[in-house]
Design a binder for these strands. Structure first.
Ligand SMILES: [Zn+2]
Ligand SMILES: [Zn+2]
Ligand SMILES: [Zn+2]
Ligand SMILES: [Zn+2]
Lengths: 154, 154
DNA sequence: ATCCCTCTTGTTATAGTATAACGTCCGCGC
DNA sequence: GCGCGGACGTTATACTATAACAAGAGGGAT
């Protein structure tokens, strides 16, 4: 997988993700409206986590509505359908690096540049949950730290 | 470990945690002031995650200050020194179940009653981080779902 | 064509979470 | 006594998120 912290052809990165979103929407009867599509593109421009109000500012500058629900609704649509993820520790949003594939996402989040690498790992806590009769519905796995670039720039 | 979702002697639970906090503060030159101690007690009363403003309301009712920084400072003190943890997905706070012990905490969080069980697991993502040159400083591991009691009450 | 229904986008207003900045008090070392 | 740092209190403000309502677009039924 091309990773956020490695050099890669980012144009391919973007177009593959948009393509996957289009296909998934077509297949599931969802509509990837201009607002939703543009919101995804904004997230895809970088591998960094963006706050809802950052996204909103971009959308407003491009002629979409200027009020918070505009951004939150688009972001929630993307998150619900797996085209983006919410980084809980930052209250921020990032495009999914594996759109289409079912996965329990986990992230490496740089505290300096906010770039995010998405990893595929086994759901932790499953045995503990089993032992206690706890039914896991969703997992949040986020490692915060410094990415290679930001370590170097120390 | 006595778990939040199991029957246990909760009085012991509370007094052991307070004792551990007192000892740790004494040993590290920290001051467990009445405000900080009471804040910890409030968190300890249940194994549930409480919002900062819930805690603040309790503190105010007991004669402490009524403004947000009062609660946030006490909570931040407890979190910084490992006597409490922040549940990122809820923007809420819970008393630590292993005060004193060094640990990368992970949690089972009930979405219905907000009770939290703290587990000890290995840091996930370590191999991935290593491979990418990412320096992990903190991990957030939270499984959300339904606890045994809330499953039963379905 | 008209009606109805649902979905999307837009708005206003408000709720919920968190911190910056500053003043006072108190205990301690000098 | 004086200076200092830490804890606690305040005011004010910033940041994050949602409830509730209005307007338009599209589609299917009559
Ligand atoms: Zn890329
Ligand atoms: Zn970085
Ligand atoms: Zn207990
Ligand atoms: Zn529960």
């Amino acid at each position: 997988m091309p990773q956020a912290f490695e050099r890669h052809d980012h144009g391919t990165c973007i177009s593959a993700a948009l393509r996957a979103a289009e296909d998934a929407c077509a297949g599931r009867g969802l509509s990837l409206t201009p607002l939703r599509r543009r919101t995804l593109e904004i997230l895809l421009e970088s591998h960094a986590a963006l706050g809802a109000y950052d996204v909103l500012a971009r959308l407003e500058a491009e002629g979409f509505g200027s009020k918070p629900p505009v951004a939150y609704r688009a972001l929630n649509f993307l998150v619900e359908h797996g085209f983006a993820h919410r980084i809980e520790a930052l209250s921020a949003y990032v495009a999914c690096a594996r759109p289409g594939a079912e996965h329990a996402p986990s992230f490496l989040v740089c505290r300096s540049c906010r770039r995010v690498a998405e990893e595929a790992i086994a759901v932790p806590l499953a045995p503990e949950a089993e032992a206690e009769g706890f039914a896991i519905e969703r997992t949040v796995v986020e490692a915060q730290g410094l990415c290679p670039a930001c370590r170097g720039a120390s």
